[in-house]
Simulated assay, not measured.
Amino acid sequence: MEPPLGFEFEESVFEGGSRDRKRGSPPLPYSARRCEPEWFCEETKCEDDAEAVNVKKFRGDLAYKCQEFKKALSEYSDCLALLPPSNLAMRRDVLESQARCLAHLRKPKEALEIAEQLRNGATNTDHVTAVLGLELAIFHTLDHIEKIIEGLQQLIALHPFHPGNWKLLAEAYMQRVTSPALLLASETDYFQGGGPATGGGYLPASSAAAHILCHKKHRLGNEVSLQFPPQTNGYFGTGEECQRGAGLVLGKSEAHHETKTPDCDSMERSSQDFRLYACASFVRARLLYQLTESNQSSFALERNLQAQREIKGRLASMGWNEKALSLVTQGMAEDLVPEKLKEDAQGEVKCIGAPALTSLLNAAAEEFESKWFHKLKENFSHLDCWT
């Protein structure tokens, strides 16, 4: 049977190549291109803008690793100036790097402006996940526990089966219980110089909290002394010194100050709620770690088991009895069934407009505690949880 018209091949096409392969010299050994360590640090003449962009980016990354944040920020800025507008992926990467440098340089306002720019340009859940991680890093430098909790809730709304996020959320709830002093700072305090400040300068988190507490004590007197934990003493003087100063400043005219302080009973109830939220989040994280354990090996499995050991220790230190932990485990495992996990994995939304995704996340954060913890609160209202 003859081949159809137009598909005939000359015999020489095959014969010539075969003879050349048989008679030709053996191919040269492959030699991979090798670069010296930190080759980009040397003064090199870049042939095109693309190479110059890479050099600037590598220099910025190295400076960031060495914690030379001013130098890194300068390199990233030069890199961004050379980037073409069409290179969106690298532009987002460099902008995020700039924001992280600004956060370390105690310029959270500028860092959050970049984060907002990245959020507005997000087109999928991967973009939003990166932005939320960036915002968490910024708020961690400020010890802004409320914003940290809000960001973790949004991350979990996107990825409800990520054990690491649940573990971080549990740690944040515990910090919310043990460090109420940090909650007294206003939004303005956080963004003037990078944190709670006095005289225009930044203070470390613990010192800033002490300053805020002393200021509150001087202003309100003895009536708020029960709100402040003992570890806040030291930077601006002891609690007794604060109280003596308050006695000198206040006088009788401040006895009926118009500012209303939180009721001790309501504060205790709030503290108990957050302890429950922390316990439930730890339990949820442990369940998810156990769920992925069978598919892991090597260092990944070791990290998984280490995280489970840490959670076990934290739960033991919280003093919950076995009956309470069993109820929490049942409540946090209701959706952890294979069919449910498969459906959620298949139905995950990857591409969505930035406004719709932002509104979805905000709504999820507002409903988060109601969705995950409301049923537990009802069950625990009449139960003795402690050992």
Rank of each mutant, 00 (worst) to 15 (best):
M174Q: 13
E171M: 11
I149F: 02
Q192V: 12
E146P: 04
G193H: 00
A170R: 00
G164P: 12
P163K: 02
G193C: 00
S179E: 14
L168R: 13
F191H: 03
Y173L: 05
S179I: 10
I148Q: 04
S186R: 03
Q153L: 06
P180F: 13
L184C: 12
E146K: 14
G164I: 09
L182I: 10
H159Y: 14
Y173A: 09
L183R: 07
V177S: 06
A170V: 04
K147T: 10
S186G: 08
T188P: 01
N165Y: 06
E146M: 08
I148W: 00
L169F: 01
T178P: 12
Q192L: 06
E187Q: 14
P163F: 06
E171P: 05
Q192N: 04
I149P: 02
Q192R: 07
A181K: 11
Y190E: 00
L184T: 14
Y173M: 07
I148Y: 00
S186E: 07
L152K: 14
R176E: 13
W166S: 07
I145K: 04
I148G: 02
E171D: 15
G193I: 00
S186I: 03
Y190Q: 04
H144L: 12
I148A: 02
A170W: 06
H144D: 15
I156L: 11
E171Q: 11
Q153M: 09
P163T: 04
N165E: 10
L158S: 09
A181G: 15
I156T: 04
I149Y: 05
A170Q: 01
D189Y: 01
K147D: 14
L168E: 13
A172F: 00
G151H: 09
E150Y: 05
I148F: 00
E146T: 13
G164C: 14
L169D: 01
L184G: 05
I149L: 07
A181I: 11
E187G: 02
E171V: 15
L152Y: 08
P180I: 08
E171C: 06
F191Q: 01
A185L: 02
T188A: 05
E187P: 05
M174G: 11
N165D: 12
K147S: 15
G151V: 13
E146C: 10
E146Y: 03
P160V: 00
Q154R: 11
L182G: 10
Q175D: 13
Q153H: 07
L183Y: 10
L158V: 13
A170C: 07
A170E: 04
A157P: 09
I149G: 02
I145R: 05
E187K: 03
P160N: 01
W166C: 05
I156N: 08
I148L: 08
H159A: 13
L158K: 08
N165C: 12
F161Y: 15
F191T: 03
Q153D: 11
G151Y: 09
A172S: 07
K167F: 15
L158F: 05
S186A: 06
L182C: 04
L169T: 07
Y190R: 01
L184H: 14
I156F: 02
E146F: 09
D189L: 04
Q175N: 12
K167D: 15
A185P: 02
L184W: 13
